[in-house]
Simulated scan of single mutants.
Amino acid sequence: MESNEIRISSWNELQEELFSDSWSPHLGRFRSRNAFRGLSDAHYPLLTGLIRLGGNFVDIERHILRNFKKYAHRSVAGGDSVWHWLSMAQHFGLPTRLLDWTYSPFVAMHFATANIEKFDVDGVIWAVNYVQAHQMLPASLRGALEREGANVFTVEMLAESIWSLGDLGNLAMEDFVMFFEPPSMEDRIVNQFAFFSIMSDPHKPVDQWLEDHPAIWRKIIIPAELKWEIRDKLDQGNITERVLFPGLDGLSRWLKRHYSPKG
């Protein structure tokens, strides 16, 4: 919806928009309740890897996940719930019904400006209020959050409430979106301040659901002509691949981008 789109015109204006609703009167602190997702192209929809897979992807999902568990099991430590395995699969690039988000607006800025091959098109940062989204959850899930005094689920909390992905779709007549934190299985998840969303209906993209709930989200457009300034300032602030993807692969990605010629 166009009324939810905000086109910024400067670095300072971007900061104002990203932190505009972060004041919490209840806490007396600046604590944003937004999930952020940065994309290099403002026209990209919020599609999961499973939807992008195409074909009869929902029926294929269980086969993909079953075989992932079969071959990955000896390399994976931790819980054995479907939520643990989904988190692990998403983290390592398997097409799943999860979508990546971050608590950090600066990490979202990084992903909106990391691909220098997309510096000729507008980028975007989505901001979705996960607390308000969770107010529309089925009563059983809202109750689980309230008992924990939490705003976002953990995989352990979900494992106590939902045994299978099939159960998720049977909890309510209306579609809903849910946010949860993965286990801190790698430094990358911790450094990116990452968490996931999941739709009750795996066929439905998150942005389609958001269209019916315009009060809880904003779409902040980053003009192409501002990307180099934002990118350079993020690099100066040490928000880079070297930090967000610890290891030699992240170091190599940072160096390749950092020393690529402008234009």
Rank of each mutant, 00 (worst) to 15 (best):
V206K: 03
L248T: 04
N129H: 07
K69D: 15
N34I: 02
H43D: 13
W11A: 01
D235S: 08
R52M: 10
I189Q: 04
D59R: 05
I222N: 03
F30S: 08
G54S: 02
F195H: 07
E211K: 04
M136L: 14
R74K: 06
W254A: 00
L158M: 09
G237K: 00
D175S: 12
V152Y: 10
G123M: 01
A133S: 14
H258G: 00
G28N: 02
V58Y: 05
L171W: 09
P25Q: 01
W163D: 15
N151H: 12
L244W: 06
S197M: 06
A35S: 12
L244N: 03
Q192M: 08
L53P: 12
Q192V: 07
A150S: 14
F68G: 04
W254E: 15
F106H: 10
E181Q: 13
E146M: 07
R97F: 12
V107W: 05
T113C: 15
R257C: 13
E146C: 05
F193K: 08
R97N: 11
S81I: 12
R74N: 13
V58L: 07
P45D: 01
H26W: 05
R7G: 01
D41S: 00
A215R: 11
L27Y: 06
L210A: 09
V82P: 02
M88D: 09
D207E: 15
T48C: 08
P105D: 13
F179M: 13
Y44R: 04
E146W: 01
V107N: 04
E5P: 00
W126K: 01
G28K: 02
W11I: 00
A215P: 07
K227A: 11
E211S: 08
F119I: 02
S24W: 04
M136W: 12
S3Q: 14
H63W: 15
R188E: 10
Q192E: 15
E174T: 10
L18E: 03
I198Y: 08
V76S: 08
